[in-house]
Amino acid sequence: MHNNTNSGWKGLVIPLTILILWFFLGAFGRLNTQLFPTCGEVWEALCYLTQQGLLWHHVANSLSRVFTGFGLAILVGVPLGLLMGCVPQSHLWFGPTLHFLRQIPPTAWIPVFLLWFGIGEGPKFAVIFYAAVFPIAINSALGVQQIPKEYWEVSKALCLTPLKTLTTLVIPGSYHAVFTGLRLGMGMSWRAIVAAEMLASTNGLGYLVMSSRSLARVDEMFAGIVFIGLIGMLIDMAFVTVQNHLIPSWKWRVSKAGGEDLVSTPTPVTTSFQKI
């Protein structure tokens, strides 16, 4: 592990270089401002949108949609994932289906959802739900499967009821992975909502970007895009902070027969889709 306390500046090198390059290209008039606005123009657009209260209006709309859809995805995805994880050989049972469904981009469903749920908020919730539910369910399932079989045997030997096994083994043993799933799911739904708002909406950040296109306001377009990235990043950072500070991590302590104690921390599942 690298010591990250004083290396935060490294991550800023590339964005700052791009910003400086962008600034000077604009300052020397080397940008075709019909296609690519200058730094200053984007900044002014941001200020204008903020002053008018438009930016917050769009942000608030996008966020409330994301959190509603995301909440639904948690309600369905976590129990479903935990259940899948408890089924022996669950990857054989559920793997192909999940593989198929998660290959379909949530945006491909938009026309279908529009047909099913009308043109209100319904299809947007559905898109977010669809984007988030797979990473959440898959990681929850993997989290349960990561619990060493030795602990399952303890629960068997102690004749724990299914409910007690759930509360004392399945949930605490998997919630790191569940949280990783939530974080991935959140990222997916943020990306999906913007796409959904581009297609059928009258507000939200996706709508802001799309409507600026029809008004040929390339500066507002960029302002919207930058803001989408920033908010997505902030949400993700919030998740990481919660995961690192509020969720205790423990060490599995299982000794193999005749060997020394193997002490390991469960690895977070970040790119785990391939496994299931």
């Binding site: 303890v154 030997a157 004749c159 000794s255």
Partner: peptide, 28 residues
Amino acid sequence: PSLERGYVFQDPRLFPWLTVLENINLAG
């Protein structure tokens, strides 16, 4: 398995997220 037959595993296998007392009282 039955609670009439207690099993002590070769490795302690305590649930790492439960306190010592909670581990002991696990069987209820």
